[in-house]
C-alpha cells in the first residue's frame, strides 16, 4: 500500500448537520494534496478527522498505517507520525520559541535536553527563525509565529504534515514567507495535505487538488483542473476566488 492517507466513504455529522457526506481520497508518499472549497464545505473537518481530532460516524480512515475508525486507535502513535499546523499557530505563550520546539521531543520522545536544543536550532534554521530562539511568541509577527509552529511540528520528524488554513490570518507579505517554507518542505519530499485559500500556491505546489463542496469531494485532479473545471460549482468557486483577488489588489 503506497497511500499514506486513505479515506473511504467517510461520513460525519454534527447533530443534524451533515458535514462530510461520503468522502474518499488517497494521498501517496511524497505527494502534496491541497483541499480547497468554500467555508462550510467540510475541508477543515476532513483535515481534523485525519488527525483524530474529530470522530467519524461511518467509513474508514487509514493514516500512516493507523486505522482511525478503530476503537483501539493509539492516538499517541498516530500523533508521532502526523504533524499539524493550525490557522491560529497555537504556540505555547509562556515558553520561548526554543522551549516550544523542545517540549515534545523531550517529554514525548525522551530526547536529552542538549540534543533537543540542537534539534530546535536545526529546525528553526530550516524555517529561517534561528535568530528568534530566545524570544517569546508574543514578540513575533504572525508569519514568524507560524514558521515556528511549522518548526515545532518538524522537530518530531512526522511522516505526514497537515496544514489547516495556515496563512488565513496573515497579510500577503507574511503569507509569502510562510508559503516559501511550505514549498521548501514539499520540495524536500514531505507528504503534505493542506487546506488553503491560496489558489496560486495550490496550483504551483500541489500534485493533487481536491475540491470539496457540500461535504463531498466534488472534483479531484492536478493543477490544470483549476483552469478547466468540469463542474459549474468549481467554475464558480475558481471564478469567485480570482475576482476576489483581483478586487483586493485594486
Amino acid at each position: 500500500m503506497s497511500a499514506v492517507v486513505s479515506l473511504s466513504n467517510v461520513h460525519k455529522q454534527f447533530g443534524a448537520l451533515k458535514v462530510l457526506d461520503g468522502v474518499s481520497f488517497d494521498v501517496g508518499r511524497g505527494e502534496v494534496a491541497a483541499i480547497i472549497g468554500q467555508s462550510g464545505s467540510g475541508k477543515s473537518t476532513v483535515l481534523r478527522c485525519i488527525n483524530a481530532l474529530e470522530t467519524i460516524q461511518q467509513g474508514t480512515i487509514d493514516v500512516c498505517g493507523h486505522a482511525l475508525h478503530d476503537a483501539g486507535l493509539n492516538r499517541r502513535a498516530l500523533h508521532l507520525d502526523v504533524g499539524i499546523v493550525f490557522q491560529s499557530y497555537n504556540l505555547f505563550p509562556h515558553l520561548t520559541v526554543e522551549q516550544n520546539i523542545m517540549l515534545a521531543p523531550v517529554s514525548v520522545k525522551s530526547v536529552p535536553k542538549k540534543e533537543a536544543r540542537e534539534l530546535a536550532r536545526e529546525v528553526l534554521a530550516r524555517v529561517g527563525m534561528e535568530a528568534k530562539a530566545e524570544n517569546y511568541p508574543e514578540q513575533l509577527s504572525g508569519g514568524q509565529q507560524q514558521r515556528v509552529a511549522i518548526a515545532r511540528s518538524l522537530a518530531m520528524s512526522p511522516k505526514l504534515m497537515l496544514f489547516d488554513e495556515v496563512t488565513s490570518a496573515l497579510d500577503p507579505q507574511l503569507t509569502g514567507e510562510v508559503l516559501r517554507v511550505m514549498e521548501d518542505l514539499a520540495r524536500g519530499g514531505m507528504t503534505m495535505i493542506l487546506v488553503t485559500h491560496e489558489m496560486a500556491f495550490a496550483r504551483k505546489v500541489a500534485s493533487k487538488i481536491i475540491y470539496m463542496h457540500q461535504g463531498k469531494v466534488w472534483e479531484t485532479g492536478s493543477g490544470e483542473m483549476l483552469d478547466q473545471p468540469k463542474t459549474p460549482e468549481l467554475r464558480n468557486f475558481v471564478g469567485g476566488v480570482s475576482s476576489d483577488q483581483a478586487s483586493a489588489s485594486v
Binding site: L53, R75, N90, V108
Partner: peptide, 13 residues
C-alpha cells in the same frame, strides 16, 4: 482549548 489540542497533536499525554 486550542492549546490543549496542539499539545495532544504533538503526542503529549
Amino acid at each position: 482549548k486550542s492549546q490543549i489540542e496542539a499539545a495532544d497533536c504533538l503526542g503529549l499525554s
